[in-house]
Amino acid sequence: MNRETVIEVSGLYKRFGTFTANDNLNFSVYRGEIFGFLGANGAGKTTAMKILCGLSKPSAGKATVAGFDVYRQSEKIKQNIGYMSQRFSLYEDLSIIENIVFYGGIYGLSYREIQIRAKEMLTNLGLWNIRRKVISSLPLGWKQKISFSLAMLHNPSIIFLDEPTGGVDPVTRRQFWEMIYNAAEKGFTVFVTTHYMDEAEYCDRVSIMVDGRIVALDTPKALKQQYSAGSMEEVFLKLARNKELEKEHIL
């Protein structure tokens, strides 16, 4: 199968003093893939995400994102990725449309382009008629959908989703995953972290980080077979259990 690589990481290290937060990471993420990036709190996920988003430089090793080098082309990377986190990236006291204009401007889109994309985006979401509503007045589920669509406004090749579904009801969570599947089908690459182990099952491939290292990477199905587990939660528990205390001792 001819697969285009969107993220390529090899021999990546990140050290803070004597502490190794990322310890020899090696993985690739392909175009149109939903890649689940799992790990316990403190396993090193955020550190790795920051590097991949061009916000932090590795101590050693190689990494390219959307074809750009994390050492030398971090600004290019930022233009070619979208990012959404559970902690909102939307401005609560601006309206929906004002948020879109603001983000479009940051990403360097022309006003005309922003207008076209805003209309398309809000029509798809069914929110065009309420575009002048202030964000703070909207239900959490809508905010999430807007955040996600905004992260794709500038047509990035990769979208990073950092625990995107925290605190929403199950229907909204499923609708959100529908959006993720649709985005992946259109060719967007989705890189997602989550603490919901059922969501790990929805990913095309999943990596599990323990103490700064990637200890497993495969399709959910293959991982369940390999660790003779009935669910991804079992796989995760088998790999990550009891590591937290050890880690505290190192810190």
């Binding site: 316990a40 709190n41 625990e163 603490h195 937290e244």
Partner: peptide, 10 residues
């Protein structure tokens, strides 16, 4: 347990 990983939740 909000925002806590699966191991700690268990």
């Amino acid at each position: 347990t909000t925002g806590v990983d699966a191991v700690s939740r268990k």
